[in-house]
Design a protein around this nucleic acid. Structure first.
Lengths: 339, 339
DNA sequence: ACTGGCACTCTATTAGCGGGAGTGCCAGCA
DNA sequence: TGCTGGCACTCCCGCTAATAGAGTGCCAGT
């Protein structure tokens, strides 16, 4: 048996009420709060069907109904009316971003903004190196055998690494290394860079080959290894909203998960082209925590250079959160494009 | 009436037991668990005095005693037996730090290490710019009117800023600016730099004065404004240890405080020369939260370039925490000195 | 100065007992 | 066929009362 329109309407009403009140919702209060045009008894029948189909459940007999993960999923997929941002929220975004000074600042402000608007935990991935391009490489001698390699990308990000040379190098040599690297790599996407670095070593004069190889290995690390690691986090205090109600005994593991960058990246990551994605409960594949993640890619124009998102209880205001995440992602993208 | 030795011993026993059991401690269990050599009744008399003096209190009549902030203070000041690190902890520190790649890495590892060892919330301040020295300045042209200013310090830290020039500049000009800046500032402490930057503008040829003034203003910002801002945080999940027992309803404000860098800096900051400092409860001057902070400065040799510390419930294992914080601070200092 | 004894206080736990919300089912009605 | 009102049933929640237990303060005795 498929679900007719009214049953879907009932599901929507249940989700909305439950999100608002945090309490299992019964048939009577449902018909009172929504114009369903039918009696509680009828709603009860619909509920029985919805329960059978796995969209809602009862915490115990003779309690109201609560949406299941599947219920939220259906709600998000088919029942969400797009909720436009309030003017106040729009203004908040604008105001939050005036006077940004650098990339770090953008990321930090964004994550706070997200946390504040959604009243949830917010995560922002730093613009990923691998999708951006090298703007400039700099080599700074520290001692005769040590250099600092500084890489600046077109997203304004700066990475530095220490390079230990096998033998002392002269300033002129450093100069030459620097020139060659820039010549070869400046303007290149980071994803495309590794083979070029390889070339760099091969094309090098034999007497400099050792130095260059050494530099190249660090360069490769810089390009790839830590490329997607960095994250900013804010709003953990929001986890305690609603007292112990959400996250019964699970606050602990949630906080732990939030400290694991790897896990966070998995949550925010895997971005499809510029859509906002919602993962509900189990879909997140971490420890069956009752959390949902709303995430989106962002970047200048159509390219995606990083992800951002929001994490909260499965019982969250999906329409509002989705709208906010999407708006912020777009805004940050524009900001990066301007820069 | 002053406190004789046995009363102090009783206080120590109370603190130790309470820290361990998290429950108000009574006279009977005290004499059972410690070799005080007197009867419960005697201990009760001592307790009455300690309570009068404000070192302990009763949550309610006919409950055991709990240390007050003053009690912890006395305990820390006079009763703490220095607890050497266990070999296991020592090894943990060593192991945690092998293979560090850069400053970011050091800070992140340190903060995790601290959180793990103390099972508390850990905070590490990035090496402060103002006490370190300029190693190198780099100017990278982005467009004809835009430069990226990159500053590398001797603690390995890199700061970058965008500089908007009033008029287009030629590569040669950039070159010259760069040369002058490095000549003047390389090797200088950041605290000493601002007046030198001033000189730089004054000594400049008139036709370049505008450019240099513009650069100088950004440079000054970089040197001063955000100099002590950055922090790393770890172990927030540890706040939930002991369930709702510590931090009754106060988990929320604690989490909020942890997100305010300003507050954290106040907690960790104000460092005296290389001692480990303990601030208990109210002494922290934030909202009367029942938290204590154990903090220490760190840096290469005797200089302090940053602070680190640990935050936990006032009921914490002070001797252990103090020892750990001190050891980690020293270790990080050595690491920076090597670099 | 310390100790054992004792009465007292207060908390935390348990059990018992409606009240209430909500359900499922059924018979009746359009 | 689909909706409705009625009704008995179930189970949670909150309230009260009773009890056990831990710990204290005080006092008289050594």
């Amino acid at each position: 048996m498929s679900l007719d329109d009214r049953k879907l309407e009932v599901l929507r009403a249940i989700v909305e009420d439950y999100v608002e009140t945090r309490e299992p919702v019964g048939s009577k209060s449902l018909v009172e709060r929504h114009q369903l045009g039918v009696s509680p008894a009828t709603v009860r029948n619909d509920m029985a069907v919805l329960e059978e189909e796995g969209y809602i459940r009862q915490p115990h007999t003779s309690a109201g109904r609560v949406p299941t993960d599947a219920g939220y999923r259906l709600f998000v997929d088919r029942l969400t009316r797009i909720k436009p941002l309030s003017p106040a929220e729009r203004r908040a975004i604008e105001r939050f971003m005036i006077g940004v000074v650098d990339l770090d600042d953008v990321v930090h402000r964004t994550v706070r903004l997200l946390a504040q608007l959604t009243r949830q935990v917010a995560v922002v991935q730093y613009p990923s190196l691998s999708r951006s391009a090298v703007r400039h490489l700099e080599l700074v001698p520290i001692s005769t055998t040590r250099l600092t390699l500084v890489m600046i990308t077109d997203t304004g990000r700066v990475e530095q690494r220490l390079v230990e040379m096998p033998a002392p190098v002269q300033p002129d040599d450093v100069w030459e290394l620097r020139r060659r690297c820039n010549e070869k790599l400046a303007g290149q996407k980071l994803v495309d860079a590794p083979p070029l670095v390889q070339n760099l070593v091969e094309e090098c004069a034999p007497e400099r080959r050792g130095d260059m190889a050494c530099l190249a290995s660090v360069l490769l690390e810089t390009l790839v290894e830590r490329s997607e690691e960095r994250l900013a986090l804010a709003g953990t205090a929001n986890l305690t909203r609603g007292g112990v109600l959400d996250f019964q005994g699970t606050l602990r593991p949630v906080l732990e998960a939030l400290e694991e960058e790897v896990i966070l990246l998995k949550l925010i990551g895997d971005l499809e082209p510029s859509t906002t994605r919602v993962r509900i409960g189990d879909e997140n594949q971490i420890d069956n925590l009752p959390v949902s993640v709303v995430s989106s890619g962002y970047g200048p124009g159509a390219t995606i250079v990083g992800g951002l998102g929001v994490l909260g209880p499965t019982r969250m205001d999906y329409p509002g959160t989705i709208a906010t995440v999407r708006a912020v992602a777009r805004y940050v993208g524009d900001l990066l494009a301007q820069n």
